[in-house]
Design a binder for these strands. Sequence first.
RNA 1: GCCUCGAUGGCGGAAUUGGUAGACGCGGCGGAUUCAAAAUCCGUUUCUGGUGACAGAGUGGGAGUUCGAUUCUCCCUCGAGGCACCA
Length: 868
Amino acid sequence: MQELYSPREIEAAAQAEWNQTNAFQVSETPDQETFYCLSMFPYPSGKLHMGHVRNYTIGDVIARYQRMQGKNVLQPMGWDAFGMPAENAAMNNKVAPAKWTYDNIDYMRTQLKSLGLAIDWSREFATCTPQYYRWEQWLFTRLFKKGVIYRKNGTVNWDPVDQTVLANEQVIDGKGWRSGAVIEKREIPMYYFRITDYAEELLSSLDDLPGWPEQVKTMQRNWIGKSVGMEVQFPYDQASIGEQGTLKVFTTRPDTLLGATYVAVAAEHSLATQAASGNPKLQTFIEECKRGGVAEADIATQEKKGMPTGLFVRHPLTDEKLPVWVANYVLMSYGDGAVMAVPAHDERDFAFATQYDLPIKPVVRTSAGDHTPAPWNEAYAEKGTLINSDEFNGMDFASAFSAMGEVLKQKELGNARTQFRLRDWGISRQRYWGCPIPIVHCDTCGDVPVPEDQLPVVLPEDVVPDGAGSPLARMPEFYECTCPTCGSPAKRETDTMDTFVESSWYFARYASPHYEHGMVDPKAANHWLPVDQYIGGIEHAILHLLYARFFHKLMRDEGLTDSSEPFRNLLTQGMVIAETYYRLGENGSKSWFNPADVVVERDAKGKIIAARLGSDGQPVEIGGIEKMSKSKNNGVDPQSMIDQYGADTCRLFMMFASPPDMSLEWSDTGVEGAHRFLRRVWRLANQHSQNSPPPRLDKTSLSDDQKAIRRAIHLAIKQATQDIGQNHKFNTAIAQVMTLMNVLEKAPQQSNQDCALLQEGLETVALLLAPITPHISHALWQALGNQDPVISAPWPLLDEAALVQDRLELVIQVNGKLRGHIEMDADASREDVEAAARENENVLRFTEGLTIRKVIVVPGKLVNIVAN
RNA sequence: GCCUCGAUGGCGGAAUUGGUAGACGCGGCGGAUUCAAAAUCCGUUUCUGGUGACAGAGUGGGAGUUCGAUUCUCCCUCGAGGCACCA
């Protein structure tokens, strides 16, 4: 064993051995329990960032732990390779997105390998290859024929200067990020997945996922947003609208129907369009509503505005004339693009009616009474007894709901209906670097899916986009084709798919990544799926995870897999954050400095009070702790950390600094601390290896001090097993191993028993750290005299007998305040404990002159004496 | 605006789920070793008062339940993630 801990050599040696033995390559072994451990695959953005390192370390710890439990562990890796950054890089550097992407993958693969992850690299793939996306296209055509995919108009951000569609991210304060032009909403035809057909199942099967964080399930439930309500039709007022028909709205509060004093429609609604034709002012207003982006956060925070259309509808029960307004807060994409407004019992309607002087009519008796004077009071929205509602007066919500439903049904003006907040998933993107949508547009036959034997529709890879729309739309050699059905000249669809589609099924492809006869090999898929442990950022809690669940059900319904949910257990990891430093420029702009270039100053207590730039010694401002990002220049390059300290130190620090689901604050000194710990482990093992090999430990003849040492060993086993295996709290597992090391370092090494005990302790340290710091554990395990590598060793077993204590220290409280400690035999009776507590000097002092009312004894823990 | 989550020493965090608040690590301070430094080791470190034994306060703020609250309930403040074309 080398005297000094030298991570570079140790890590290279361990990785070489794993490579040579194909240690992590797995196949379907029928008699062994499987464990599929999956971390969200990376987008190949250029180089690894700390968020990746954290994600893949967490996954690797779990995978290696499960392997030590004797399971057949699959841990794959691949690349989510389509996406916008490749196009942006192309525009900036005049490189084809394909080349940029493949280069990034090559570099990042090397980086990942230096982390020493227990990955089966033989299963690696990138989603931008035809071998992968052809099956996505295949599924698309199947679903299109089934009607699960359909075409309709959708609203997008339109940049009128660059003449292109922008992503929400590219719209900043309502303006295009490159052109600065005011963005407009525009309707274009798009393909949609009917995810709403699966809304009910996506909602109900969340209950079958006990291994998911409650937080994520709640977010998904709210996102799907099931509401039971009523569809109500307001007949057109023929004098104003001039035709027969009804305006359809959806409401969850049909009990307030008699309180409806106006209706509001979205700017894109057909009634709005009709009214605007003879009304230039309204026309202008509608144009104004179309200004700005489509992001819901922007729409929801903008000022509520409206304008009357001059059209009227009739109240379905009273036949009263109600004005039709256009309002910018009504979303065309939710429900029917129209709402009935009940200002007395809805906050938004109340604000709107107050602003535009519309009537407010209370129809529910709430805890605030029968009237609804301004300002708005939350109680107005409560359910209660109906008033001012004719024959419905006195009813509660439930009876009003059914009574109204009955009347509306008879009039054929309404029905009970369940509405979801979830909308169908639009997947058309007017971009180049994505999976081509396999559709041919034929004048005679319409939208024709590309037949299976003509798949894949290959994306040309030598194209450099210029930011003015998709280059595919300008490539006749791509879009000119013949109709697969009738053979006449036709046009190929030039839109590509949302990149969320690729990431919605990659976990299934890993089961049979090179299978050429289908999307997945059903045998392999059913062997490995569902994923036993999925790990990824909390930012994916809704979209990615919902789409993947949806796709899994689509694949199930295609007979590709038997399971209904893709991820049995989910761990959502927090962000990696770091301190930011900046200087103000003359124009008030901030220039940011990387923490690596900054030196901090501390006060007498060690609190950071100031910071200076290392290069010029001048002060910089401390900007607060934020998510590591390019824009704030507070990213720490994982590569430089690995080069300096080794992968094990990096992994240890990341797992120790905080539990995986919380944000992790980067700390250079914390990394040094982790390294220091590994050096201490190495030093003790080296010292121990100088002694002659110890005999077996004789557990029956341990001294009290030796018992205490052995107790520390098994406490560490207990804690680490719980923390790694069940709770995924790696930080406390490591803390317990550190505590064990503190004990072992002080342990004597004289007798054979001492050495045998130290041998047990060091082997335990090596095993417990093996999932976290696999390289040093690999070397230690060998140095401790073991033949088989540590990756094949079983996880250590807890000896409960080692934890037993004869004497316990109990806490004594008076009125809940700590007043002393007593040591008692572990099996002391309640009475003995109480008696001992009553005699305690401090207890007597604090109960002097008081009467003891009650004594609470918690066995093995404390005694609380209640006195007054 | 809506949905979800979070807040504990100088810092990251711990607390067996209602039972000793601050494990473990970082930083600070004091000391040892050293010609000196690095590295390493030992001690100390929530705050306030006190030489000290000790006492009081203390888990973002306010109220409540309880013998006992970081933990449960209600209200508030601040921060983070998501909001459907970033991935």
